[in-house]
Nucleic acid binder design. Structure first.
Lengths: 253, 253
DNA sequence: ACCTGAACACCGTTCAAGT
DNA sequence: ACCTGAACACCGTTCAAGT
């Protein structure tokens, strides 16, 4: 089974009516501070490129995101993209930022457990909304201000909730590790065999009848796809554990 | 910065003294049941290919694993590999199996908390031993008997420990999600900026001085790379939470 | 039976050239 | 200033041919 040959629905002449073009959105217009000049508006901008890339991944999967294809999608040659992004790797960083920009931060409350649910929930929501993209760039280390904001909110809530510095960071890593891992495992099929045709299949099917009693017993539950609630329940369990940690440590005013 | 050009140390004539050749290991000889025939032994076998692929990733990173390069490494043309693996995707499945085969299962004890520590520990150990490979294939859903064995052990321990079927599966997903997510985040740098040159850098460096007090306060702790103990402590926290879940549910004999 | 040569249809990226 | 053509050095994969 070929991996990256011709999954394209139809050849679609790249010159005719490209799907994603100028997209002159609000946050784009602030990029060049000069008052709208008279010449033809630039077709490309970093923001537009990242948006188009994310759209392309959403629509056709990670394998469809090539510089050439993305260029075609924007009505431009692939090489033109290099005016705006240094490399494909930089493009993926941009896609990651674009993706994580959907992580909204609630500023009002200060209870650490609520903040923890918020923080993790948002990661899971993003992963569900853009599985292919999350799979591709969901683990990238970002150093943008936007990517820091949710982290800041969670860490602040933990500190105010009485977590010591090292416990706060530990809690952050625990919550963030779980969120990403659960989301990615969900996308990948949770290690337990899904069929090659993509349809979920009973886990125990190929197992020798003897020797795997627990898996056999739990086949139904294991085959069930995980839900939002499953994810949330896991976070609750973690929060319960954290609460215990916190209780067994001297509080900090 | 070019991504996949010429990272090779030296051109190394592919015909002269290939590093990884026959490797006639124990579990290889059982593959063909016929008694050692007289002709030259086959240079290639699925097991040998997977081992060589994992070695190559360990030594030079995921980008170095191309069919052509792997062939050269084994003293063979790339196309010869297709006699034994259907595609590069199938090759990666094999690498994942090879990797997870390092997950040893302790059979003796039956305490679910110990089993949980064992199960998660092993995943983390594998990830630490083969970070590039784990990053590449650590999430693949496998349906081999070997990959099922540790899962069976954990699920069995949970059931015997009093977890109901749905809680046992939930606990498995929680533990496995955390393990993979923590390990992958560790490899990727935990979302918080590492410098482009690869050296770990203080997280807060690029942040505006105002607006991120918690991150600034915790910079030192955030910049510290996570350890085996950090991972283990997270598992303990999860176990504490699971214990509470268990206590608040009617026991099953 | 097992491996190879040559080819196909792609990649990311560079660079001199166009407008 | 911004985009393009042509080229370079790669990819995965197929298939007819070699031994």
């Amino acid at each position: 089974m070929p991996v990256q040959r011709s999954n394209r629905p139809s050849p679609r002449p790249p010159s005719a009516a490209p799907k994603l073009q100028a997209v002159p959105a609000l946050d784009d217009s602030t990029e060049g501070q000069a008052p709208r000049r008279r010449g033809r508006p630039p077709r490309l901008s970093r923001a537009a490129i990242f948006r188009a890339a994310l759209d392309l991944i959403d629509a056709e999967g990670a394998a469809a995101l090539t510089m050439r294809r993305l260029g075609a999608e924007m009505g431009v040659e692939a090489m033109s993209l290099y005016r705006h992004v240094a490399s494909k790797d930089a493009l993926l960083d941009g896609v990651a930022e674009q993706l994580m920009a959907e992580h909204e931060v609630g500023v009002e409350d200060h209870d650490w457990a609520v903040s923890a649910q918020r923080f993790t929930q948002q990661i899971h929501t993003i992963a569900r909304a853009h599985p292919a993209a999350f799979d591709l760039v969901g683990l990238r280390a970002l150093n943008t201000v936007d990517a820091m904001r949710p982290v800041e909110a969670l860490l602040a809530a933990l500190r105010e909730g009485g977590f010591t510095p090292d416990r706060a960071v530990a809690a952050f890593r625990l919550l963030s590790g779980y969120s990403r891992g659960f989301a990615l495992s969900e996308i990948a099929g949770f290690t337990l065999a899904s069929a090659t045709d993509g349809n979920p299949r009973l886990t125990g099917d190929k197992l020798p009848a003897e020797g795997f009693p627990a898996i056999h017993e739990l086949t139904g539950e294991l085959a069930r796809e995980s839900t939002e609630d499953d994810f949330r329940a896991g976070v609750e369990t973690i929060i319960a554990g954290l609460r215990e940690d916190l209780a067994s440590t001297p509080r900090i005013a």
